[in-house]
Design a binder for these strands. Sequence first.
DNA 1: AATGAATGAGGGTTCATTCAT
DNA 2: TATGAATGAACCCTCATTCAT
Lengths: 204, 204, 204, 204
Amino acid sequence: MSTPQARRGNTRQRIQDVALELFSEQGYEKTSLREIAEKLEVTKAALYYHFKTKEDIVISLFQGLTSPIDELIVWAQEQPRTLETKHELIRRYSESLRSAEPLFRFMQENQAAVRDLSIGERFKERMLTLFGLLKEPDSELSDQVRCITALFSMHAGMFAMQNVEGDPEEKRKAILEVATELVTAANPPNRRPVRPDSAQTEAP
Amino acid sequence: MSTPQARRGNTRQRIQDVALELFSEQGYEKTSLREIAEKLEVTKAALYYHFKTKEDIVISLFQGLTSPIDELIVWAQEQPRTLETKHELIRRYSESLRSAEPLFRFMQENQAAVRDLSIGERFKERMLTLFGLLKEPDSELSDQVRCITALFSMHAGMFAMQNVEGDPEEKRKAILEVATELVTAANPPNRRPVRPDSAQTEAP
Amino acid sequence: MSTPQARRGNTRQRIQDVALELFSEQGYEKTSLREIAEKLEVTKAALYYHFKTKEDIVISLFQGLTSPIDELIVWAQEQPRTLETKHELIRRYSESLRSAEPLFRFMQENQAAVRDLSIGERFKERMLTLFGLLKEPDSELSDQVRCITALFSMHAGMFAMQNVEGDPEEKRKAILEVATELVTAANPPNRRPVRPDSAQTEAP
Amino acid sequence: MSTPQARRGNTRQRIQDVALELFSEQGYEKTSLREIAEKLEVTKAALYYHFKTKEDIVISLFQGLTSPIDELIVWAQEQPRTLETKHELIRRYSESLRSAEPLFRFMQENQAAVRDLSIGERFKERMLTLFGLLKEPDSELSDQVRCITALFSMHAGMFAMQNVEGDPEEKRKAILEVATELVTAANPPNRRPVRPDSAQTEAP
DNA sequence: AATGAATGAGGGTTCATTCAT
DNA sequence: TATGAATGAACCCTCATTCAT
């Protein structure tokens, strides 16, 4: 399974795999490059052939994740700001997260470490943008909470439910369902008509 | 305000304050005892006079938090398992958290570090117990998600909303409101009639 | 057995007892004052009320031992330099050691530590003096070995024989017996003239 | 002689040399890795490249010694249990020790430290095995003392006689001579024939 | 594509010791 | 006759990183 021959040429990938595994198991700070190297049966120096720094490994891990999200954001910005769009937004988001579960677990559990890791700031921006796309500009506090909770539950959901029995895909659907409800509740249909400060009579 | 004389006798407290501040600002692993000591203008060794290990400092930080929660759990277990009880449960829980916000930020952002910190396991148990008190024994996946999300939103809520403007106390209320809704939705009134173990024929 | 009342006034003694116990059990360097203090249920500072330094404790431990040996040396120097005197010397020496066994175990097992402990040099002198009293001035190498071995076996004997079953007092006698033989052999009465093993009739 | 270039490739060896030197000069506990590193003009971290722990250095020092002794033990167990075998045993043992003098000085003077150093227990076993090979199964206490003394004198002998003038090789021979005598005396010729553990009618 | 050897900075922790009270 | 609080120095050890080969 990991004979020297089989390792030819895919060391970079293997480093990423092991790194993600250990990072999300033990945390970023507690995982040393020595540990990663040992598990791969290579030298620490070999890691430095493939990655410039420890942080670089993390960055590379996120590379497959950020562009899908960026595309999603672009897509959403092009759509009309309807409830349907929002529903579709989180549906697609949920989809994106499916393959990235360990990455999110890692991020969720290592926020303190990730925060000053350059990826941190970038990610926060995305979150705020998504948040902005979900909530109405002047919505009430509680509606904002609903939107944030919707996003968070999708991030944290999967591994927060490790103790709950059930098929992973079923869980994901359940989480999406709740998130959708929250978004729905955060966008009351009859709100804008009544709002006095800008007679947005979007009546049919 | 910080003359050597004025510091007599409250060093332990001051260590805890600075530690919590730095831990939740920079993360547990990235905060060194040297740093804490320097900020206090004492020696590292002085910290060791007051606390046996670095972990011991963390444990002491949680000491004021665990017992209120334990009491809350005991209280809830003595109440009838009604929706009102559940509402009151999270209302009280929200109250408990008010003073413990930095502690929760710390825990939320350092899960990886906290996990093998002895406090981690204990805390997880509490969460599972609370979860068990909120959800009905045989509730559907989506209802379980609602309960977990309710709990999580209360933990993460405050600092997840740092970018949202508004009075902290207002935010807390908004969060509580959403959490309450989630719990309500997770406990559909027409479910209980069917439950066999206690013919609660709550007529339609 | 160690009520606060019973401890009145004899703390100094108790420190010495515990110190000797721990020193010879774990070694001098590995035994910290904290450990001693904890076992006594006093503070480290209390030790410093009774002893100026850690080394001072050791010195005090040897105080009961050095004078008997000094007296023994004085006595021996006043006697005629006969074999009988030498026998009596080691007999009395053996007697002195009986009560000082833990002390010798400590010294034997912590030579490296004791060496630069001021007591070390002083003790070495005594040993050399005793050695000088046992051997004849111009004796052969092998006879010098016999004398040194006699002394050493008395020091190391007791705890070197911990694995051998038997009554401690019996052991001491056995050791003394062997030591006596060694001294006898090192002091052949008719030495140079007659040595038997190779009719070296070095007659004048 | 110690240019960076000349040092390449033999650092491990140099660490061992300096370590043994310092350990036996100052004691194990009192010798810090900083000291060793400084004397070698490398960093402490360099030591850790070559040895996993401080204890590991000690273990490596003993590696050249234990196998000769083990072989010696095996050899002796294959021989008939005669006096000649015993003589040859200690003769060979003495030979083994010749090159290991500093090591034995170290061990002898740091027993307390070595005792819980993993090497300690292993070494003690060897000693007991050798002891068992020298003494007769049911020999008297005094004979057991003779055997133990024989062994000990060979260990301690060399550096116990540092103050005695004479050629080292001559000293070794003298020590071996005395040890041989002790073993001889511990194995009385007329004991075995008669031994039915009682009625030892040792004819005149 | 990788290694062997090393470094500098810093980690948490422990020590003997001091001194005002 | 002790203690509470603190210190400075040192400890062993680990880390991410470098660089010649």
